[in-house]
């Protein structure tokens, strides 16, 4: 139940790079609660692919610019 997700993300850094975008604003624009953004940033929650794409779109980035999987980090595609 409490096993941490293997998916890491750069949401905190990307928010910083986008004029310190508040978590509330990102949550509103993505369509989730602020608590979900907090849990995702802290690695306590791995969002659905749908939400992950919406988050990456907010930062105009690619999926793997925002989300990475620890097990496959550095593996050839």
């Amino acid at each position: 139940m409490v096993r941490p997700t293997q998916v890491t993300n750069a949401i905190r850094a990307l928010r910083f790079a986008h004029d310190e975008m508040p978590q509330t604003e990102l949550a509103d624009r993505v369509g989730v609660t602020r608590q979900t953004i907090i849990a995702t940033e802290q690695g306590r929650y791995s969002p659905s692919l749908e939400t992950a794409f919406r988050i990456t779109r907010m930062f105009r980035a690619g999926l793997e610019d925002v989300f990475r999987h620890l097990d496959i980090e550095g593996d050839p595609l």
Partner: peptide
């Protein structure tokens, strides 16, 4: 409450 505080029910 435990799920909200400790990270939900996701399994990998």
């Amino acid at each position: 409450i435990a799920a909200y505080r400790k990270g939900g029910f996701q399994t990998w």
